[in-house]
Amino acid sequence: MSSSRFSRGSGPSQRQLRVGELIRRTLSDILSRGDVHDPELNRMSITVGEVTTSPDLKVATAYVMPLGGQGADEALVALRRHKGELRHLVAKELTLKYAPELRFVLDETFDRMDATRRMFADETVQRDIARHDEDEDGDD
């Protein structure tokens, strides 16, 4: 019996990754050029960190964060208010069969990285790391 061509593996397909990256770049360009008809949104410098797509490519979730992290809630409200216009602008620049529905979520990657740095800087963790390194050195 042959395996399914559309395997439900652990991660997204190459096509999903490629389309997500195309949408991310296009969305970033649109926001940096100020193509949306909203002075409030155009004043914000918004970073699009990643775009993930559904398997059928009909839904794209954009992980966004305003520069410096200030005004994140206002940025999300503005992006969601203009998601139809943004969808139209993205579709105009890409050659997809369907224009994906855009969803916007705050990118929490930087917060998680800071939390991880704080965790590794903790005195107890540093002691455990040093003890582990000493154990490995003694195995020679």
Results as ranks from 00 to 15, higher is better:
D29P: 04
L76W: 08
G138I: 12
T109G: 12
R43E: 12
F110S: 09
M65N: 15
E101I: 05
S2C: 03
H82I: 00
L102P: 15
R80Q: 07
R25N: 02
L106S: 01
D29Q: 09
L89E: 04
P39E: 08
G49T: 13
S13M: 01
E136K: 15
S28W: 06
A72R: 10
S32P: 01
E101W: 04
T47P: 06
A121G: 09
D114S: 08
A121C: 01
V36Y: 01
R15K: 14
S45I: 15
D140L: 14
T109K: 12
R112D: 05
D29K: 09
E101R: 11
G34W: 09
P100A: 12
E74R: 15
D135Q: 11
R118H: 12
V48W: 02
M44A: 05
D114Q: 15
K97G: 13
N42R: 12
F104L: 10
E93V: 10
D35A: 11
V36N: 03
T61E: 08
L96I: 00
V105K: 14
D111K: 11
G49Y: 07
K83Y: 06
E134G: 04
A121R: 12
R127L: 11
S54R: 14
D107P: 07
T52S: 14
G20W: 00
D73S: 13
R25A: 01
K58T: 13
A62T: 10
R80V: 06
D139N: 15
R127A: 08
E93L: 08
M44W: 04
R43M: 10
V77A: 13
V64E: 07
E74H: 12
R117Y: 06
G84T: 06
R8H: 14
E85K: 11
G34M: 03
A99P: 10
R103F: 02
M113L: 08
F120K: 10
D133P: 10
G49C: 05
D111S: 09
G138H: 14
G138K: 15
M119T: 07
I46L: 08
D139R: 15
I46N: 12
V48D: 05
L96N: 03
L67W: 13
G71F: 04
A62C: 14
I23L: 06
H132S: 11
E108F: 14
D29T: 09
G34I: 03
P12T: 03
M44S: 03
N42G: 01
G34P: 08
M1W: 00
L27H: 01
S13T: 14
P55C: 06
R81T: 01
Q70S: 08
L102Y: 15
K92L: 02
L106E: 02
G138F: 13
I46M: 07
V48K: 01
Q126N: 00
G11L: 00
T109D: 07
V59T: 14
K92Y: 09
E50Q: 06
F110W: 08
L67M: 14
L76A: 05
R25P: 05
G84L: 01
G68P: 10
E50A: 05
S2I: 05
P39V: 01
R87L: 01
G69T: 09
K97C: 09
V48G: 03
V64G: 04
A78W: 11
E136L: 13
